[in-house]
Nucleic acid binder design. Structure first.
Length: 274
DNA sequence: CTTTTTCCCTGGACGC
DNA sequence: TGCGTCCAGGGAAAAA
């Protein structure tokens, strides 16, 4: 569930909690989450390094250390938080980083263990980051810039919005919401969008993400920020998770369909403005 | 090359 | 109540 607003919320709360602190060691108990590195190698790699900065790129959390970076992706159920070091890690804790004198740890909890935790010696070598597209809240993309990108793609616009190489950080919830705000049919082939529709998509994507961020993100099932807060933007969803309910703009009934194996919610009555 | 499908994983909801 | 099935969805890998 964590998309850009949820990841940004996590980074903002984590920043004052871990900036400048020294990592004294690390452990992780799901090898798959570390990629090719073992828990022992991770421990050796981070030991003694200070956290220089913590930022977000797309849905990735980038922890910059003195001699490397730690790349964390929360995927569906991942959560980072700082807490008193536990003698015996409780349920669903899958990685931990001892801080300073060891009395506190930065923990990674992940029920479904789909999240990833990767250490790299430098940011330059990380292809996951270099492949990412525009940062929606940092660059205001214009229709003239978007149009040629969409012309290359025959997929439905909502599916294209999920492509991290276009806009980084847009996930399933906000892709549906953005299409509603832009009054664009999510099923429409990206390359067929009019100039006006491109303009509205360029407006809607950052607008929806910013609004969600200002509410601390959305909590549908299990998103919880590092400080233990729930997001509240789910109360303002216009289409997502509202199948069968009335459209707030035209009174039509919100439909749920499946696109690229994921749910899409939309109003077939009013999301067709040229 | 691009696009689509599969897979990873657990817990909660639901039908019988 | 208990058991089986489906679903949530991000993104890499495999398949088409």
């Amino acid at each position: 569930m964590p998309e850009l607003p949820e990841v940004e919320t996590a980074v903002r709360e984590l920043r004052p909690a871990i900036l400048g602190r020294v990592l004294r060691g690390a452990w992780a108990d799901v090898p798959r989450q570390l990629g090719t590195m073992t828990s022992k190698e991770l421990d050796r790699a981070v030991k003694g390094q200070t956290v220089v900065s913590i930022n977000r790129r797309g849905k990735y959390i980038v922890l910059t250390l003195e001699r490397g970076i730690l790349l964390v992706h929360l995927r569906m159920t991942g959560r980072l938080f700082v807490s008193v070091t536990e003698k015996k890690p409780s349920a669903h804790l899958h990685a931990g980083f001892l801080l300073d004198d060891g009395s506190e740890s930065l923990y990674f909890r992940d029920v479904r263990t789909l999240g990833t935790l990767r250490y790299h010696k430098s940011e330059a070598e990380v292809k996951e980051l270099s492949a990412l597209g525009w940062e929606p809240l940092e660059v205001q993309v214009t229709a003239n810039e978007l149009k040629p990108e969409l012309t290359k793609r025959a997929q439905a616009i909502k599916v294209v919005l999920l492509d991290q190489t276009l806009w980084a950080g847009v996930g399933n919830i906000y892709a549906s919401e953005a299409c509603w705000v832009a009054e664009v049919d999510p099923r429409k082939s990206a390359k067929l969008l009019t100039h006006s529709q491109c303009e509205r998509i360029c407006q809607a994507v950052p607008e929806v993400l910013q609004a969600a961020l200002s509410r601390g993100g959305s909590t549908l099932r299990d998103f919880m920020s590092p400080e233990g807060n729930y997001g509240s933007y789910q109360k303002e969803f216009r289409v997502y998770d509202r199948e069968g309910e009335e459209c707030l703009r035209c009174g039509g009934i919100i439909k749920k369909i499946v696109q690229a194996q994921r749910s899409t919610y939309f109003c077939a009555k009013c999301q067709k403005k040229k």
